[in-house]
Write a protein that binds this DNA or RNA. Structure first.
Lengths: 335, 335
DNA sequence: CGGACGACGTTATACGTAAAACTTCGATCA
DNA sequence: TGATCGAAGTTTTACGTATAACGTCGTCCG
């Protein structure tokens, strides 16, 4: 037997389908009498009526659904972004569907081939430019998270003040006395990492005696460990501080140090970025920059709702905060 | 200007809307001539036509969308389950929408209030019985992951052979010579943890001299650390091996050990469960049981597709595999 | 006392798609 | 030659909802 429709409820309550729609849609003041409304509500409850969303969406021309595009959900940062976005969405009767972007998922040509993709808008995180183009093709409202503001003219953006985070790291390390730095950078070319690199070199530019080398690596513990090990055994004076683009990279860097018999933080300081669960799971706990991932998701969803309402979206950068733990200390005395 | 509809395409191609539907629906052999079909396809491409899914869903009475209910996406295990499910779904033109179950999300009364919840079926992971009841009320096809098979009579289930995993752990520890065990158990009361406890006590039942104590704790590093510390400083002979329900708990347990000046694995062996990224991030790397999380998601989605097709679903348990790393060793010599 | 109005509904329509039922037209065949 | 058939479409309908447009009746006021 088929699902119960508003027509079934109408029959049970002895009214027309339109009356059911009015009552359940909460738009009946002065249109339906209280006793009748009550009868309708009773019948609906009795029959376990649930409106057919496909029909409603078709009628209203909107779906109250947003698409969240993320690189990978298994990265805790993006899982937290989703959580924040979904909370705000739920408060406004919206749903959030995910699209893990880069080949993470099967043969769908683009996000909009997905069956669930009857969308009101899109929130895109750390988008590559080409994927962005595909999205902008469909003229859906778009909010970009943690992405180059210049890429998407006209689109709302929610950005973290990553440059300030990098500055806080360098201030901290410089104050401890470090001068020789190695930047463990993500090989992923995206705004979120490029801005770190720029902030880092600009922060060290005017420091006398400061040296900065860089090594890039895929975003995994093992890759970072190998890349760091290679860099640390290279000829020349050894850096005293490793500045990592991400906690995951920092964990790999720590593993490399351990392999080489270097103690952290006595022989080598290491910093992360993100403040994932990982950061406090390892020993020593990582000095890192805490990123308010849930807030990013919340602000992203809030911005999308604003855009859909034709309101302007708040465009301030979200502040980030250095968290000093046990992976940083003054550099060892000069040999 | 509104989105282009099949009617627009029809006008551009000089045919009727029905012809467009036939051609694009790939059901036109013998109904439309090849030149006409090509004209329609051209027009569709030209106009960037994308079918309105709300309308299609309404017409067809199905949405090609499944709901995945998980406790928390920030737990890597469930993020991986999602990834697996979404991959299989995409291969079959399905979408997956998430419902983080336990109060994780706003005021939605139940999963089906969610705006995106126009569903063909449900995959529920680690469900509590009451939430399950709410779901079964709607007579949607249901697949249960890692849940008590007795709870959901008639529903398809995808289970891991967790009992075997626990047996592999005890075999390993017993072979190393351990006899005094402390079980760091999750305070969450669900099948997935209950089955571990049962398997553990039954495995130790017939071992002469084996002792088993248990302490329960919330599923977080800090909570586990505190609970473990308390248990290890309790009077009586100290256990030589900690068997943890989850890698997260194991990491907390390691922290407690470190606080108490105990070395792992020399003074104390520790085992985890899941084989998350965490397990190889910490030092020493954890001996743990690898759970094929992606496979769980894949099998869950495959089972749901089978149920929707009226085919029987594969009900075999998924095998799990002990991974021996550096957190286990023979117990210290008796004092 | 007539008509304007409000309360309480109902009827009718549109949203965009898929597909069943129908039309037209030439070719085939007994 | 008249019935039949297949190709190539078109016309029509249904899916379930929200809402605009339309009735009907009693009341109140000028």
């Amino acid at each position: 037997m088929a699902r119960t429709t508003s027509k079934d409820v109408a029959r049970a309550a002895g009214v027309s389908q339109a009356a059911v729609s009015l009552v359940l849609g909460d738009k009946w003041r002065g249109r339906v009498s209280e006793p009748t409304a009550e009868r309708v509500r009773d019948a609906a409850r009795q029959l376990g009526y649930r409106p057919n969303l496909a029909a409603r969406n078709l009628r209203l021309g909107r779906t109250r659904t947003a698409l969240l595009v993320v690189p990978a959900l298994t990265n805790e940062f993006f899982a937290r972004v989703y959580t924040g976005a979904a909370r705000i969405a739920a408060e406004h009767g919206f749903g959030v569907v995910l699209y893990p972007s880069p080949e993470g998922i099967g043969p769908a040509r683009d996000p909009f081939d997905s069956a669930a993709a009857a969308l009101d808008g899109v929130i895109a995180s750390s988008m590559a430019a080409d994927a962005l183009a595909a999205i902008r093709g469909d003229e859906l409202p778009l909010v970009m998270l943690d992405s180059d503001p210049d890429e998407g003219p006209g689109a709302a953006t929610v950005n973290l003040d990553l440059a300030d985070g990098m500055r806080q790291i360098t201030d901290h390390l410089l104050a401890l006395g470090h001068r020789r730095f190695l930047h463990i950078a993500s090989a992923i070319s995206s705004w979120t990492f490029e801005v770190r690199a720029r902030a880092l070199s600009s922060a060290l530019k005017d420091i006398p005696g400061a040296e900065l080398r860089t090594v890039t690596t895929p975003l995994s513990i093992d890759a970072s460990r190998d890349a760091t090990e290679a860099a640390l055994t290279a000829p020349g004076p050894r850096p005293t501080a490793l500045i990592c683009d991400d906690d995951i990279l920092a964990v790999g860097a720590c593993k490399a140090a351990r392999r080489l018999g270097l103690r952290i933080p006595e022989d080598l300081s290491v910093t992360g970025f993100d403040d994932l669960t990982l950061a406090t799971a390892v020993d020593p706990e990582l000095t890192t920059v805490r990123l308010p991932a849930e807030h990013v998701g919340e602000r992203g969803m809030t911005a999308l709702l604003a855009v859909l309402d034709g309101r302007p979206a708040n465009a301030d950068d979200l502040p980030v905060q250095l968290v000093v733990r046990n992976s940083t200390a003054p550099p060892p005395a000069q040999p």
